[in-house]
Design a protein around this nucleic acid. Structure first.
Lengths: 203, 203, 203, 203
DNA sequence: TCTTAATCGAGACGGTACGTCAAGTCTTCTC
DNA sequence: GAGAAGACTTGACGTACCGTCTCGATTAAGA
């Protein structure tokens, strides 16, 4: 999450529970107030922690919210459901369920918006959220290739590009459906989406 | 954009140029400062207008930014390039070009984030941005059906759902590629995306 | 007191009552809290005024306290009591009475202490407090010379030096008695002091 | 200086050098920063000592500064110069020289100001600074009476009152001249002051 | 020589106030 | 009556110190 000075053996150690309390308080405040009305002073109060403790560990609101939201996505899994279509539908539904949480909705787009002007924040999001979940695409493709549902990749550069493309298409569609169009990504929608993704508009 | 009191005949009329100046100043400030550091006082100063004038016409920062950004998307067109694939590639490239503008990047995601907690704002975005551009999907589909590239829709409810799905997939993928993955949606990427959209992952 | 931008005709004028309320609130806070625990936020609250209003008019705590305390000394007068000794005793008792007020005790020495490191503040104190009261010494001497109690001054440079000396001796003795020795400058003490001042230790 | 727990025989003894280092660091910080910007954390750092060490020995900033400043006045002496006037001039010049030191100027008035609201601090100042230097007045008077320059005191109560009065007049005048009027108490001024003190205004 | 106990450094802790800034409203004068 | 100017209240910002605490490591004196 946040780095501490590596060579610090002396002095009072940081409270281990404070981190968890702060991130939980951040999510709670996101639910109640949303990103723009969330204040670090309020988060500190909710966490039962001093404002300085919070500033000692995170550089600001953006970094804190990224960490608080990133934890939500770590529970995503790709259980083997027997076919590529079923696998995709399963993980997309999980993803949609997380995006239905107010703490994710409010926080995620806000930090993405901030990241358009902040390279370091963009990198933090990529590391904490995006790259961490690309594993799902990799795993799903490998499984589908084992099953013979997808052909092997001709070369690794092309393979990487395809992973990125699929990730952008899946995540983008779900996010846009959920947050911009503001419609639920329910089972019916997910089935339609998966059909188009696998077989194209003509199918 | 903003409503004015309908029964106002008397008194000094509102300056007609002020609106345009304010929206232009808003976009300029978005470029220089980004959404979170944009202040209405600064916009007023840039526009050569008093803060009160600004508040008289827009309720707040979000509404102002939605209007300022929405104007950017009105120039999207769907010229007939002879095939569905070429039409999609053309409009997606236009969309990507707009999202490459700093004033669009900074503002769009921020108001979407705010909209997760503000129904009226969500509606304003839908009306000013989303629904206004769905025409492109409708037009492209009709043209493709005329050409015989796509089958006619069985019923209108299903047709609407498909339009929404395609719009979410196209807009979502471009936005995610551009703003979250922070990679350019260049011609190569657009070709790959269009191929998957039309023929599916297996193709 | 504080300067305002000279070329400001337009805009809302500064509230005239706010100044008086702030200075009164400052004296009240000095009484209750003393200089070191007085906070500008608290003064603003007491005065029913926003913190920004306060900072718009004074540069900081020191300048504010100087102005608040200086007003206390303006009521000093030198009524003609018939003899130099009686005149001195009268004004010294008035001075002692002001120094007995908690708002004066707490504030005066603190700003003098700050002034040891701040030329501008020293000048402000000199202008607001010291020079304003030297008139009492000048007036007393002139009256005593008219009565024939004191000889006329040989030259004006020497006259100025004597005024300064007398002022330092009178003010210094009362301040030291009151604040450092922390004993009351009562009538008995004032009589003894005046006797020594007029006739020397031997008398 | 500071009291330690009386019943502490065992355990590691307090570092003897720390006290001197802390008081020296305090004076150094007074010179550079003045009283109001002096922080105990900074003093601790300058002294090469932990903040806890400092708080273990002094109750707070005021007590520390009193001790640091009081040491400066211990070097005052009253060498026998042959006459009362010469003796007074000598000691007043020494006193003025100490008050010309930045560490004395900044600290002394500040703690006096704090003492207006703190009885214990007032007592500490009286004990550490004021009473310790009254010996000079007593010694000077005794010497003058031996020389026949001053009459013997009629009774001891009156004698004490006179000592207090003289001390307030001398110390007060020098302090006021130096810190409030902010003019040097040079030889010329000291001669004039001594003349008035011994012979009165009329002389 | 081996406890024993208060010291030492370092630095995190819950707090408070700082001085600044933006939001949105109000007041005055001008066009 | 709209508009420009700018003072107003409110409240969050991020920083700096406060005085307290926890920690592991010294350091002398007494057992």
């Amino acid at each position: 999450m946040q780095s501490r000075s590596p060579a610090s053996r002396t002095g009072r150690p940081r409270s281990a529970t404070a981190d968890a309390a702060i991130l939980a308080a951040t999510r709670e405040a996101l639910v109640e107030l949303g990103w723009s009305k969330l204040t670090l002073g309020d988060v500190a109060t909710r966490a039962g922690v001093a404002k300085t403790t919070l500033y000692r560990r995170w550089a600001g609101k953006n970094e804190l919210v990224v960490d608080a939201v990133a934890e939500l996505f770590d529970e995503l899994e790709l259980p083997d459901r027997g076919s590529l279509a079923a696998d995709i539908e399963g993980v997309v539904l999980q993803f949609a369920a997380i995006l239905a949480l107010p703490e994710a909705r409010s926080g995620l787009m806000a930090v993405v918006a901030e990241a358009t002007r902040d390279e370091a924040l963009r990198e933090r999001i990529r590391a904490s959220v995006v790259d961490r979940q690309k594993r799902l695409v990799l795993e799903g493709r490998a499984r589908a290739q084992d099953r013979g549902e997808l052909p092997p990749e001709p070369d690794s550069a092309s393979a990487d590009r395809t992973v990125d493309l699929i990730f952008d298409m899946v995540a983008g569609a779900v996010v846009h459906r959920t947050l911009v169009s503001a419609e639920p990504a329910d089972e019916e929608w997910v089935r339609s989406f998966t059909r188009v993704l696998l077989h194209g508009l003509g199918g």
